[in-house]
Design a protein around this nucleic acid. Structure first.
Lengths: 222, 222
DNA sequence: TCAAAAGTGTTGTGTGTACACCCATGT
DNA sequence: ACATGGGTGTACACACAACACTTTTGA
């Protein structure tokens, strides 16, 4: 039997883009302008072009929506239930991205459709099976933060130890002991104190830290 | 633009089926009977039917090749480089399966093409990018054994502590301390000693262990 | 002066690792 | 008798968790 005889599913990529804004974990969603699920919020994504790699498709979507390039991006999972899209068989390869909010140039104003950041744990109803995909991504995010240091990608270039701890507390939804947390983070040897401190804060200023060079490889230990 | 205008990639599943035979980690390969890569060994797999889920496609392939149903099966990764198949754009969702060799009814004899178990670390050249996929699977396998207990799926119903240790030593390619290993395994509380012992062995007989009931949930802790 | 986050050490508990000898059986 | 894997306990190092008070700033 010739392979061309098989009817082919459509193939898309969807991206779960996380960032931290105002000490809250946010995810980027797009309001659909077309049926099906017109008017519902959905993960950004689109069809994979016939001659581009899956990762490039994801990067392309990412750039289109946020304007950022240098982000942490990894394949998450492939969802392919036959009825997940009412129109036709669609298989989607999901990617998840971590970006720090300073790098973002959202372009919601310039476009007809709405693009917005939502609290990752309190999104509206999502189109397709995107709720399930988001939950899967949140699970992976927790896992990644527990066993790797990729979470640091969510931070700006200069940050305080308090900001890291906040980040972890948001994502794990629990408190950590300040002394133990700082000890642990510093013992990793990935960051170093700069000579600067926070300014205009209504409390004791905090030392600003930055990543040591060559974080790239170390970050991907798993 | 209508979605039907996009040329669609073909979608397949490939399965990395691991088992342990004679204290060696084995992977199931099939010799290709058609071009491209005719005569080369490859991972079992095939096209996803338009109305079946990805996991069902993987299960179908698994049953077709090995006759087994009750196995550990999980999605591994999706490979989609544009040129990975010389004929056309093919995206493959890989799955990896752990089965214990007692359950297998290989059907290589009845088929025209060859099916065989190979040492997972010493396979011949593989078709397509299957070498890369296999290496990815081996990496995941190590990881799974380190952080979960799914590796026990590779064992028969009754087994000795030495067999578990062998399994781990094969996969990690290093030796473990016998006392520490046994302590660790027993402390998990997942297995219990049966009243039986091994027979006809040229050394002191070993106690046979079996899984406690309700292993199902515990096994999937991550 | 008050609120709010920054900053700082010690102690106990549990987990992983290193290590050596006798036992039961088949040949 | 000997070869082979089965079976067992202790001691040290290290990572993690619990815990409270002083400091510096803006309002």
């Amino acid at each position: 039997m010739d392979i061309k005889e098989y009817p082919k599913p459509a193939v898309t990529v969807d991206i779960i883009i996380f960032t931290v804004i105002n000490n809250n974990l946010k995810v980027l969603l797009i309001k659909r302008g077309l049926e099906p699920f017109k008017g519902k919020w959905a993960l950004p994504g689109g069809f994979v072009r016939i001659d581009e790699s899956l990762e490039n498709a994801a990067k392309r979507e990412l750039v289109e929506e946020t304007g950022v390039k240098d982000v942490y991006l990894e394949q998450l999972y492939t969802f392919g239930e036959p009825k997940r899209d009412p129109r036709m068989r669609v298989i989607t390869i999901s990617y998840f991205a971590l970006i720090n909010s300073k790098n973002i140039e959202l372009k919601p104003q310039t476009d007809a459709y709405d693009v917005n950041w939502f609290d990752a744990y309190e999104t509206p109803d999502l189109a397709f099976d995107h709720k399930k995909i988001l939950e899967y991504a949140l699970q992976r995010l927790k896992w990644k933060l527990e066993y790797t240091t990729v979470g640091f990608k969510l931070l700006p270039k200069r940050f305080t130890l308090g900001q890291i701890q906040n980040l972890y507390e948001i994502i794990f939804n629990r408190r950590f002991d300040k002394r133990n947390f700082r000890k642990k983070v510093l013992s990793l040897g990935l960051i170093e104190k700069t000579s600067e401190k926070t300014k205009n804060v209504a409390h004791r200023p905090a030392a600003l830290y930055s990543f040591k060079k060559k974080m790239g490889e170390i970050i991907e230990i798993i």
